[in-house]
Amino acid sequence: MRTALDLAREVGYAKLSIEGIAARAGVGKHTVYRRWPSKGALFLDAMLSALQTELAYTDTGDIVDDLRKQMNAARELVGGPDFGPLYAALVGEAQHDPAIAEALYERWVEPITERTRIRLRAAQEQGQLSTEYDLDVIVALLYGPLYYRFLLIPGNYDAAFIDAVLQAAFAGLKP
Rank of each mutant, 00 (worst) to 15 (best):
R2K: 02
T3N: 01
D6R: 03
L7K: 01
L7E: 01
A8Q: 00
A8H: 03
V11Y: 00
S17N: 04
I18M: 10
E19L: 09
E19W: 05
A23R: 15
A25H: 05
H30R: 13
H30I: 13
T31V: 13
Y33F: 11
R34Q: 14
W36R: 02
K39D: 08
A41M: 05
L42E: 09
F43L: 04
A46R: 02
M47Y: 02
T53C: 13
A56T: 06
Y57K: 09
Y57C: 06
Y57W: 09
G61S: 07
D65T: 09
D65F: 12
L67G: 09
Q70P: 02
N72K: 09
A74I: 10
E76W: 04
G80M: 08
P81W: 13
D82C: 11
F83L: 14
G84H: 06
Y87Q: 02
Y87W: 13
A88S: 07
A89K: 02
G92Q: 07
G92N: 01
E93F: 03
E93A: 15
A94Y: 04
A99G: 00
A101G: 08
E102I: 01
A103T: 07
W108P: 01
W108S: 13
V109L: 10
V109N: 10
E110Y: 15
T113I: 07
T113W: 12
T113C: 04
E114I: 05
E114K: 11
R117V: 09
R117W: 14
I118D: 15
A122N: 10
A123F: 14
Q124D: 05
G127E: 01
L129E: 05
S130Q: 07
T131V: 00
D134I: 11
L135P: 08
D136T: 11
I138L: 14
I138Y: 07
V139K: 12
Y143K: 10
L146G: 10
L152Y: 13
L152M: 14
L152T: 12
I153F: 13
P154G: 15
P154E: 15
A159N: 10
A160C: 07
A160W: 03
A160E: 12
I162F: 06
I162M: 05
D163E: 14
A164D: 08
V165S: 01
A168W: 00
L173N: 01
K174G: 09
